[in-house]
Design a protein around this nucleic acid. Structure first.
Lengths: 200, 200
DNA sequence: GCGAATCTTGCAGGGATGCAAAAATGCATC
DNA sequence: GATGCATTTTTGCATCCCTGCAAGATTCGC
């Protein structure tokens, strides 16, 4: 698994991944997530059922565009923040820097529509976000030179996950990525203000 | 599902539940969670495999003592807080009031040991905590007279879940429930302070 | 004892994972 | 350009986790 051995393999993998994702989104929208089986998705994408789970961890994971690539980007963006920046600020900026890549993904409308229509998907987001939190903990602990199992880094990472989840759930996709960005900013403002009751 | 119809049924259910929980904890400690199947647990508790899932939602859920009972208690404790108390304060007090019931549970040492030894269980906690968060959102929205899908209530509930998770993960069970209580308080203090870097 | 409510169980079916065999691909060599 | 070998990907298979449903067993109140 070291980088691109050759273009061909990489390209085929990306194609398969996209085919699976596209098939999943299309079928989920058509029939609802629970009425679609992994086999249905795989037939549409012309691969075996087992292969699906080589690419995604769960049936619904195909919807999370932010799984690998963006999680990596967020992690490296955080690691790149100046070391003496306050942690919450560093986290906010790192998310800011990651959001454009987020916006560049395709099919956001369809995906978010799916999430609004099927609340059972929320629990799947939670797990995906949790994985990212786990990575953030390590980077934060590293930055601050403190153990990763301390209260403060754990809380920081979990709070950042909370920001994303709350913003994503609240987000109306008609407002575009700018709208999501604004919600994330607001949520960080709430945190920075100690979660006091907002004026509005 | 309306209250205790008669004592007999309730008692038997409680016994089965306890037998399953005890068997699960014992076997998990002996062989590690992944080496124990649901069937193993059910044979030890003398019930069918299907019955296990009438009581618990997942193999590991038997470890969550706080599932139903305490989640109910937290919810009603929050609902009972004075309506004009700042939300974060209300949440903190509600958790304070719930913790004694938490402490009264049996086998905390064994359970926490299991969690420390098997990090894969963390993802299960996340899901359990998420359910509680979902209930808190509704109560908070009700208290504040605002829609439940707003950013602020969502963020509040998620942040409260973060507090519990961070405290629970960090907790050393040798310190007893007092130790957990202290960590939760600290975590709420961090939140109230806007997550600025702590002095220590 | 008798009907009604509740609990338990078996069964069928889909989700998810480890493992090892089979297929496809990349690359060096002739 | 064809061949042979190493690496990577796909696949089938066995197994377990989990859920809905309907049938059977228990318990309840009378």
């Amino acid at each position: 698994m070291q980088g691109a051995t050759t273009g061909h393999r990489e390209r085929k993998k990306a194609e398969t991944r996209e085919a699976l994702r596209a098939a999943a989104i299309r079928l989920f929208l058509e029939h609802g997530p629970s009425a679609v089986t992994v086999n249905d998705i795989c037939e549409a994408a012309r691969v075996s059922a087992r292969t699906f789970f080589n690419y995604f961890e769960s049936k619904e994971a195909a919807l999370f565009a932010w799984d690998q690539h963006l999680s990596d980007e967020l992690a490296s963006n955080l690691a790149a923040r100046p070391p003496h920046e306050p942690p919450l600020t560093a986290l906010r900026r790192a998310m800011d820097d990651t959001l454009p890549g987020f916006a560049a993904q395709t099919g956001w409308h369809a995906r978010k529509k799916l999430f609004s229509a099927s609340p059972e998907l929320r629990t799947k987001i939670v797990n995906a976000v949790f994985r990212v939190e786990a990575r953030l903990v390590d980077i934060l602990a590293d930055r601050m030179g403190c153990p990763a199992d301390g209260l403060y880094p754990q809380l920081l990472a979990a709070a950042t996950g909370s920001v994303f989840r709350a913003a994503f759930i609240t987000w109306k996709p008609e407002t575009g990525i700018k709208g999501l960005q604004a919600l994330i900013d607001q949520a960080f403002d709430h945190l920075a203000a100690g979660l006091t009751v907002p004026a509005s």
